[in-house]
């Protein structure tokens, strides 16, 4: 079966600093991958290059069997232009650590904006879709609220609904609970859990919530210094970590719980 997401020899540099180092990664359709690791290891960058927020220096990224960062041109692969990127981008959705909701729009309008102006849905259609999604994340009564009137957890749930409204095939979650007060983390994780079971989504989740990663993910990748150091089913990575760095990281992190 063809991978939904494929990284082949991907390298990303900021000046002299190499953040992703000839990375290879395959994600199967409907697979839920948790990505853990220390700060600065490149986890967020992985998601950002996939979302085309950043460009890469070397390698190729493929989504749903087609190249993302490059496009076919007379039988060869050349760097993708803006137009091609826009057609590919709609397969991927992203939820950010700091929500990035549009503050001058209500929750409903936030979720309707892209379906109307990118997918070309009519306003009633978009409204129907948005209302259903907001209902699914438990915010049916908050549709006409502005972000400033919502708690962090509620805002993040709107952000999830907003991304889902575009019906992406791949959903990226970039430390989506790190900016939340502890008691609000649970409601967001609950929504993600429900997404995982109900929808046929491929999910890449960068997180510090080890407990969540353990029970939710199909596969866990431990990232360090731009590489995947170790990966496998959660029981394996959490239970019997093979590499020294994995062991060191896990003992430091899990000690806090």
């Amino acid at each position: 079966m063809q991978p939904m997401v494929r990284f082949r020899g991907v390298t990303k540099q900021y000046g002299d600093l190499t953040v992703l180092d000839t990375l290879d990664l395959d994600v199967a359709p409907h697979e839920k991958v948790a990505i853990i690791g220390p700060s600065g290891s490149g986890k967020t960058t992985l998601l950002r290059v996939l979302m085309t927020l950043e460009s890469i220096e070397a390698g190729v990224i493929e989504v749903d069997g087609q190249p993302l960062t490059h496009m076919p041109h007379h039988g060869k692969l050349v760097a993708a232009n803006a137009k091609y990127l826009r057609t590919m981008r709609s397969k991927i959705g992203m939820v950010f650590q700091h929500f990035n909701l549009f503050p001058h729009m209500t929750a409903l309008q936030n979720c309707m904006e892209a379906p109307v102006y990118v997918l070309g849905l009519s306003k009633p259609e978009a409204e129907e879709r948005a209302t259903a999604l907001l209902d699914m994340v438990g915010l049916a009564d908050k549709v006409s609220h502005y972000p400033s009137h919502l708690s962090g957890g509620q805002q993040q749930r709107v952000a999830i609904a907003r991304a889902l409204a575009m019906r992406p095939k791949v959903m990226l979650f970039d430390e989506v609970t790190s900016a939340l007060d502890p008691e609000l983390v649970g409601e967001v994780l609950q929504v993600i859990r429900r997404l995982g079971s109900a929808h046929q989504l491929t999910m890449l989740i960068v997180t510090h919530e080890m407990g969540f990663a353990k029970e939710f993910a199909d596969r866990v990748c431990f990232f360090d210094a731009g590489h995947i150091v170790e990966q496998g089913p959660p029981e394996q990575v959490f239970g019997h970590p093979q590499h020294e760095r994995t062991q060191a990281f896990l003992s430091a992190v899990l000690d806090l719980h």
Binding site: L53, R89, F96, L101, F102, V118, A163
Partner: peptide
């Protein structure tokens, strides 16, 4: 305007003119 707004608009695949005008 915070960078995150531009990024969210990009992630939602909004075109540049639309991003300027609406967001």
């Amino acid at each position: 305007v915070p960078r995150g707004q531009w990024e969210a608009a990009l992630a939602l695949n909004l075109s540049l003119p639309r991003t300027y005008w609406d967001i």
